[in-house]
């Protein structure tokens, strides 16, 4: 796994669409439906809608299981000349010690089977992650329209 990005891309001119708190198990379901709604509004095709919804479902589950929840920010902006839907998951959980390992296929510490992070990465156009042990993890995914 070569492309584990440690720096998050961020631009001032992104338009913020929403901010949601993920706290309970039901929020995983509610929020992934919310994300699908945004993807639909963004006029993504049905397959891309499903890709984004599935990717965030993996990320939300991680947040709930490992960090006890967190915050989800939805934005849109222009990246490399393309219109992008940007979803950022922020938690203040235990953090990930070995990012490369966590991003490799088949790796899991919990109840998952290790499809979470690498699986989510395959479903989006850009995947960025920043994690500090004992401080938390930020995952940002982007999907072009």
């Amino acid at each position: 796994m070569s492309l584990v990005m440690l720096e998050l891309t961020s631009e001032k001119n992104w338009e913020k669409l929403g901010k949601h708190i993920l706290k309970f198990e039901n929020d995983v379901v509610k929020l992934r439906q919310t994300i699908r709604h945004y993807a639909k509004q963004f006029r993504m095709g049905i397959v891309d809608q499903t890709r984004v919804t599935t990717a965030v479902s993996e990320l939300f589950r991680n947040m709930y299981n490992y960090a006890g929840g967190g915050e989800v920010v939805i934005e849109k902006g222009i990246i490399e000349g393309k219109e992008a839907l940007i979803i950022t998951c922020i938690d203040s959980g235990p953090g990930i010690e070995d990012l490369e390992l966590a991003m490799s296929d088949g790796y899991s510490t919990g109840m998952g089977m290790g499809y979470g992070l690498p699986g989510a990465k395959r479903l989006v156009d850009r995947f960025e992650i920043e994690s500090k042990v004992n401080e938390g993890t930020i995952v940002r995914i982007m999907k072009w329209r």
Binding site: V47, T50, R51, T54, D105, Y115, G119
Partner: peptide, 14 residues
């Protein structure tokens, strides 16, 4: 299974 779901499952690697 919806086609979009099948595509996503395969890409997910499951």
């Amino acid at each position: 299974m919806q086609p979009a779901v099948a595509i996503t499952l395969v890409e997910l690697g499951l």
